[in-house]
Write a protein that binds this DNA or RNA. Sequence first.
DNA 1: GCCTAAAATGTATACGTATTCATTTTATGG
DNA 2: CCATAAAATGAATACGTATACATTTTAGGC
Lengths: 326, 326
Amino acid sequence: MVSSKDVAIQAGVSQATVSRVLNHPDRVQAKTRDKVQAAIETLKYVPNAHARSLVQDKTKLITLLSGPLYNPFFVETTSAIVNYANKKGYQVNVQFVQDDELALAYATAIQTKVAGMILSCVFLEDAIFEQLTHMSIPFITYNRKHARNEYFVEIDNKQAGYLAAQHLQRLGHKRIAFIGGSQKVSTFHDRFIGVKQALGTLLPELVIHNTADKEEVAKAYAQLMQLPTPPTAIVCGADSIALAVMDVAYKAQVKIPEELSIIGIDNVEDSRHGAIQLTTVGSISERNLGLVAIQELIKMIENEKKPCIQITESVKVFSRSTTQRC
Amino acid sequence: MVSSKDVAIQAGVSQATVSRVLNHPDRVQAKTRDKVQAAIETLKYVPNAHARSLVQDKTKLITLLSGPLYNPFFVETTSAIVNYANKKGYQVNVQFVQDDELALAYATAIQTKVAGMILSCVFLEDAIFEQLTHMSIPFITYNRKHARNEYFVEIDNKQAGYLAAQHLQRLGHKRIAFIGGSQKVSTFHDRFIGVKQALGTLLPELVIHNTADKEEVAKAYAQLMQLPTPPTAIVCGADSIALAVMDVAYKAQVKIPEELSIIGIDNVEDSRHGAIQLTTVGSISERNLGLVAIQELIKMIENEKKPCIQITESVKVFSRSTTQRC
DNA sequence: GCCTAAAATGTATACGTATTCATTTTATGG
DNA sequence: CCATAAAATGAATACGTATACATTTTAGGC
């Protein structure tokens, strides 16, 4: 490994000067600057980011703890986050964490001294909040939020659930089912509250929580459809769930929306596809939540101050082709 | 920031002992080990990965240079790569790089002393190869490969192109178009060669290269369909392109496959979706290319030896519902 | 040409860890 | 109980960089 010391020798200057050429080019004469640059080229020197961040006690590194990519929502947010951070000169350490491995993910993530952390996967009650605060690491959550109600970017989940259920109700549906994820996370928790607000009481047999991946959605779907009187419409707690439901429904030759109406929440890119045309609820501004979050995080990092961030985007129904009058 | 020195003081031992507790617990008495562990808990000490990698001259860090996530192929590979690497104790630095920003991506990626590098985005002729070799950084490419023909994992792209075109030909199609990406990358280059082998000469008006994102695909599609005699079938150089074509076709009320047959290459997960059912060409084993690549890379990193890796997976047609007899 | 201020460069040090080598403590066997 | 080997611990150092401080060089004004 070629170090700044090697460059210094090659250029006939001190190591400090090499460092200055890199960080404060204006503080060094043009002549010596050229000598050093030449030496850098010759030796193909590249500065060691670890040493740099060790001495400066800061890094250009951000850790992203995202949900799994089989959910297109996280595809879009991950993409936006990584690209924006890179543009701003930050490297991004990515992990796709399943809820049950969260603790491990935190542990490893914290070892790398990071400039900041951006996470989607937080439980309502989660110890990570204290830990990050204690280490004074700037952080922000997107999609989900913590019970402490600080530093988050989300859509109005209650309203989203409400509008989704209301949409089906207004189309005349009476037997409306709900398929969602864990109630331990704010997203599904709040969305379900919204659904209940719109519908009043839901029959327990028509409510399925804790589905995560495609297989579990398929199981949930099967369970609903083999009921004596199956639902005529389903509110899916997320577009990823809706897409999975559509998949199994199509494969079971069930016509959508003729035989079954489906509505999602998130308004992901995929839902707009000509072959999908999923009716869904999403933010009015159509801003990418990940992008909003990373922008806020970088502001926090670079301004060193932490005004409490609480962003909740208003939502509306995007009516497409997977719902129709009952 | 609390350091191992602080822990040492708290526990009444030397810093060296703290380090030993962390790295060679067997080399320290149970009693002192407990004292140190207690101190670690009390102070919430977490070791600094930068200092560690500085002194050891190695890291548990891998850089991934992936293609953009609007291509579902990269969604699947990124997911597999990151998850496997994490399981093996590596952090993954991710960048989604457009071909035109490749140089910048390399530059920043190299600064972080990494254990290895895994990249999809390489040009056939690309200086990165020499640079990585010079820095003796283990690396591997997936999807694309370099002209040097070393350290890659791919599918048999020529064969894939050949089979895709042949499939349409056997269905009786005469006017077959091709939409692909840059010919500077091995993937599209080879796939197009295969197409030509199967079809003999293609009319120049039916060949469109250099499409990257959705918009460009839409333009390409429009260009083809407003020809005096439009094609009856399209070979898409990648499933992502095929999906984009389907999107615009559906929105233009063009029936697939009745009015237009479409075949892709990659066999991504999305292509199996009930609402999509894209006919495509993909590896027989259906192994995730990214997974294969990361497994090989980690082997290289941990065995320190570098047998040349050249993996080309055989392919076949997955016939679904976007192609039919002309 | 000399004095002074300013600019440029060099020297020394710190960051937090792992490890080599030296030293101390413990265990073993007679 | 002592001699010796082995085990455990401590002291010192290196990794590559940035920077505060010291020193040298340059420029400016007379």
